[in-house]
């Protein structure tokens, strides 16, 4: 089984978000970039398939060379090879088109992406890939078992979960649950050393449609001060929620 894990290089969850160039660009100065958390769960599940079922695991990103430390980290965690499509990722449609080309050329059986990138929260790349490639697709995936080309997957739904059956080739939009938080791996010294020997191929982008463009950004308006209510005066709280906030 050949697996491709699609990795989006995103600001660490603790990052302060600022914009620059007249509020037209995300300000990446001083920001630490990491593997998108949803993709990290997917990568960890892929490592399980590698270790238990002999799968080969490649990782791919569409991004500039600033994404390479993140890809090295994925190699240090245990991926066999990395691919970077040398293009600034500005929208889901063109990113998916790049990834679809890689997938067609190298006939992967399983493509693990994330439910969404935590930066632009598009939540569209895996679905677009599925449509472009005509592959099966399970989103918000929280459980994945593969036997030959038969797949049993679990997905999160509003208010519960659904078990699905499908076949390879398959695209997954993964998230926590695919593996547990405690299963995530921190690269060790040996992994980091080995990652240096592994291939990080850089390929040129193909022409692709742009689905949308971000023209400008802004930050939310600062919040007013909290209204504190004494713990022994909860009738007042109920009154405020009813008459002032009008939420009950």
């Amino acid at each position: 089984m050949k697996i491709l894990v699609c990795i989006s290089n995103v600001p660490d969850t603790t990052s302060k978000i600022n914009f620059t160039e007249g509020d037209t660009k995300f300000d990446s100065s001083g920001v630490q970039f990491v593997i998108n958390p949803n993709d990290e769960f997917g990568l960890t599940r892929a490592m399980w398939f590698k270790e238990k079922q002999g799968a080969t695991v490649h990782v791919a990103t569409v991004g500039l060379n600033t994404a390479e430390p993140t890809m090295r980290k994925a190699l240090a965690i245990g991926a066999d090879e990395a691919i970077r499509v040398d293009m600034e990722p500005t929208n889901g449609l063109s990113v998916a088109t790049q990834l679809a080309k890689l997938i067609k050329e190298d006939s992967y059986d399983l493509i693990i992406a994330g439910r969404e990138s935590i930066d632009y929260n598009g939540g569209m790349v895996p679905g677009i890939l599925a449509a472009q490639l005509n592959y099966n697709f399970v989103n918000t995936c929280i459980g994945l078992e593969i036997d030959g080309n038969k797949v049993t997957a679990t997905r999160e739904i509003d208010g519960g979960k659904e078990t699905l059956s499908t076949k390879l080739p398959l695209i997954v939009g993964g998230q926590k649950g695919l593996v547990e938080e405690s299963d995530l791996r921190i690269p060790n010294m040996r992994g980091i050393m080995m990652a240096r020997q592994k291939k990080l191929n850089v390929v040129a982008p193909v022409e692709a449609n742009t689905g949308s463009s971000d023209l400008a950004f802004e930050k939310p308006a600062p919040k007013g001060a909290v209204k504190l209510v004494e713990a022994n005066n909860l009738s007042e709280l109920v009154d405020l929620l009813h008459n002032e906030a009008k939420v009950i």
Binding site: L93, N121, G127, L129, I157
Partner: peptide, 23 residues
Amino acid sequence: SSTDTKYMAGILAGKLNAGYCPN
């Protein structure tokens, strides 16, 4: 923006080659 709709949305965007603006 429900979970089901977001599942379908990407497929739809890919089928139609359409720009999709979520959230």
